[in-house]
Design a protein around this nucleic acid. Structure first.
Length: 324
RNA sequence: CGCGGGGUAGAGCAGUAGCAGCUCGCCUGGCUCAUAACCAGGAGGUCGUGGGUGCGAAUCCCACCCCCGCAA
């Protein structure tokens, strides 16, 4: 029987939490997660996904924000005498003092093929870069971020229509299986963790809201990838001129078109960021390099999502060029 | 009391006191080899709910219900 403490916060960690709980040879002694945070329109304090799930599973929950120099939590955790920690999307760095507590160390599930894409946004970055595959890695935590030796790794394909949520779901489920297997193999001494190859290290940045703003001078393929990568947050949006007032439009679903040839004669349509009508019910933005991005689903500011056709029905002045 | 937007025809929107409108969709007919095209005609609204002010309210005032964005 392996005694562990589970660290996790968002939905991504749920598959792992459930898989570990369900396994007969693994005993979760406690679940550590971030404290309740304001959520929703009234900003009511809401427990994290992991906290809610752990409650349902009847596991003891420890909510903690700051782990550094937190003697109380240190003492509390040391009483469990865990063999291993399992860390999945916890969102807080574990200080080395804590990592030293479990007898066999702390296993982390990271949604990339380490050493590629260390950091906080590996899933979004993989889609943004147009990768055809990514993966999940189970590794031992050390004091450097996503740096420790690898226990197990598995490749996952990225579909051309994958968005961050769809890819994240798949990585979460496959990651849970890999984590359980990796944990057992590692505990039984079946696998020997190996150091990451520093030559292939890359890092992903923390995404901010501003990253969602669309640069229309990029090609439609790049913009389409951004739309899929930054869904649902921060989203991909542009600011249109609504009768003199700035008007934010989020683009939910769009596909790059290969050519702008039909519009090459019209100098107006070469201006990136212009909205043009392709045909009945089909609309596109002009992007860089004479490419077009056909839009299907949009979300105006303060509105719910709607089809591009519907949106433009009620905002006809937005169309820059109409093909007769 | 976190900030803000909104509820008008099946959809998306205009209309801020004086006959309820636009772009679509839908129905009928026409034109076409044909069509998501084009032409002609038509149906479809208790303007979120309740109250108030006015000669007159979608529009102004009050209350309530519902929806959404930001934020986290």
């Amino acid at each position: 029987m392996i005694k562990i403490v589970f660290f996790g916060t968002p939905e991504f960690a749920l598959s792992s939490l459930r898989a570990l709980t369900a396994h007969g040879e693994i005993a979760i002694q406690a679940v550590v997660t971030q404290p309740d945070k304001p959520k929703g329109r009234s900003l009511q304090k809401t427990p994290s996904s992991v906290a809610q799930c752990a409650e349902e599973l009847g596991l003891p929950v420890i909510k903690i924000e700051n782990l550094i120099n937190n003697q109380e939590v240190f003492d509390q955790l040391s009483r469990y005498h865990a063999d291993l920690y399992a860390v999945v999307a916890f969102g807080v760095i574990l200080p080395s003092a804590l990592l030293a507590l479990p007898a066999r160390g702390a296993l982390n599930l990271h949604p990339s093929l380490l050493p590629r894409y260390r950091g906080s946004s590996p899933i979004q970055t993989a889609i943004l870069n147009g990768d055809t595959e990514t993966g999940i890695t189970v590794m031992l935590l050390d004091e450097k971020m996503d740096h420790g030796p690898i226990v197990a790794q598995h490749t996952v394909q990225i579909n051309t229509n994958d968005t961050s949520p769809t890819l994240s779901d798949r990585l979460s489920i496959m990651g849970a299986q890999l984590l359980v297997k990796g944990m057992l193999d590692y505990s039984n001494g079946k696998v020997q963790p190996y150091a990451q190859d520093e030559r292939y290290v890359s890092y992903t940045k923390q995404i901010s809201k501003d990253d969602g703003r669309i640069e229309w001078t990029k090609t439609s393929k790049e913009i389409a990838r951004q739309i899929r990568a930054y869904k649902p947050w921060p989203g991909s949006w542009t600011i249109l001129d609504n009768k003199g007032k700035p008007h934010t439009l989020k683009i939910i679903d769009a596909v790059p078109l290969s050519t702008i040839a039909d519009y090459a004669q019209n100098p107006l349509s070469h201006t990136p960021g212009k909205l043009i009508q392709l045909s009945r019910k089909r609309y596109a933005f002009v992007c860089g390099g004479s490419t077009l991005l056909e839009i299907f689903t949009v979300q105006p500011a303060n509105r719910t999502t709607m089809s591009a056709d519907s949106y433009i029905r009620g905002n006809l002045w937005l169309i820059d060029t109409i093909k007769k």
